[in-house]
Design a binder for these strands. Structure first.
Lengths: 230, 230
DNA sequence: GTTATAATATGGTCAGACCAATTTTAGTTA
DNA sequence: TAACTAAAATTGGTCTGACCATATTATAAC
């Protein structure tokens, strides 16, 4: 088999991770300083520093010059920088992202209705109203559109699902898609949001999913056009 | 405003990232050595090393002792280590993961059938056969079960979707769920796999999704039991 | 008690040295 | 010529000590 000799830095990284977990350290807790780690783990400052830098990159620790080392409030946001580079290197197929988003939203609707979740309709209408106004003012519509979708995911009461959706959303934002430009398209989108809320309120899964599907159709059409043009 | 002074290491990291992108470097391409980077960027070896270590942690570069620095074949696998720590720190609700997996698979089936994808039925039957044998031999059933699910996702011809599903799968594996233990349950699971293949072959979305749903039901029941016990 | 200042602690960067693993080169042999 | 071997060079891994920059803490002045 492959023993694959671990470097000292790797060993230290594992030890530190374990220490965080074993000591049940919470975000923003102060961690040991470089000097203390040198003393405790009996390795050079170089190794400690490289381990800390690594853990910082992974969003596990946060190092403040002059201040010390702290536990980062990791909510998987470190993943964003990875995605960003991945996107800038390989790009991403818009169509694939939209397909994923559709899957997520269809799934979210099903979860909400099947789990018989008590939906905060007010919040939905409130966001949708902001969306409406942003369309009229032609200002930041994407933001409010996005808020709606995120609220939908959050309503599923599945935190893990929400986290992953956020990550995918980051990817989405990187791609900076401006699929809907015309006001009439946006208005149609707004109407569909309203229909979706109603369907959810009535716990009508079929109707909700049909509306979402309809919501996505013009986007796919648009993408197909783009593909054909290029 | 927050100027937030960037450290030299951070600057170097950005420069290196940019260099990879601008030079259109591909995975496994040889990158500049530490010495060359010191020369080119005019900073100390310490800074270069810390930047390289960081980029390695993010799965962007791969440093081989004695060999040199290479572009990593990043397929988002670096995210795994972040998830691992996140899981070990915060844990994860099994129910949430299963809900996500169900969403993914329902979505995959829909994509396959709606996109009218030419399915490699042989591959499905082959994997399912291995699954069958593993059940009989009571050996590594989870592995083959997983293979089936991954093939399903791969068949959607959506690479991004596949990547994300793999990440979620990693999470799944961390949780080390042994939900099906008894041979009869496993056999039922095998039968359902077979039905799913057939439904896909016949492009019968309703049947496929019904079967998947049925496939997940006992798992949710099991989870509910576990929750009630604790 | 508050504020200003000095001292201290802590991380950031640099330089040089030596070790360990890998790759390259040169040499030898079949 | 081709394949193997050994030496040399390259490259990353770790250590030490020094000095700078920033943040926190202690001290002194008001």
């Amino acid at each position: 088999m492959k023993a694959k000799k671990q470097s000292l830095v790797e060993v230290v990284i594992e030890r530190i991770k374990k220490s965080i977990i074993d000591n049940n350290l919470k975000p923003n807790d102060k961690f040991l300083s470089e000097g203390e780690l040198v003393e405790q783990l009996q390795v050079s400052r170089t190794v400690i520093r490289e381990a800390l830098i690594s853990l910082q990159a992974l969003g596990i620790l946060k190092v403040k010059a002059g201040g010390g080392v702290f536990v980062a409030d990791t909510k998987l946001y470190a993943i964003t920088s990875i995605l960003k580079h991945h996107y800038e290197t390989y790009g991403v197929k818009i169509k694939e992202l939209v397909e994923i988003r559709k899957i997520i939203e269809l799934g979210a609707l099903r979860l909400i209705i099947e789990k018989n979740i008590d939906v905060n309709l007010e919040a939905f209408y409130s966001i949708n109203h902001s969306y409406y106004q942003s369309i009229i003012n032609n200002n930041n519509t994407n933001q409010y559109d996005n808020d709606f979708h995120q609220l939908l995911i959050k309503t599923t009461q599945n935190e893990t699902f929400y986290h992953f959706s956020e990550i995918i959303n980051e990817y989405f934002l990187l791609a900076k898609m401006d699929l809907f430009q015309k006001e009439e398209d946006l208005m149609k989108s707004y109407d569909e949001h309203t229909q979706i809320i109603k369907a959810v309120a009535e716990k009508d899964l079929t109707k909700a999913q049909q509306t979402i599907t309809q919501h996505f159709n013009p986007i796919f059409t648009f993408i197909k056009q783009m593909e054909e043009e290029s």
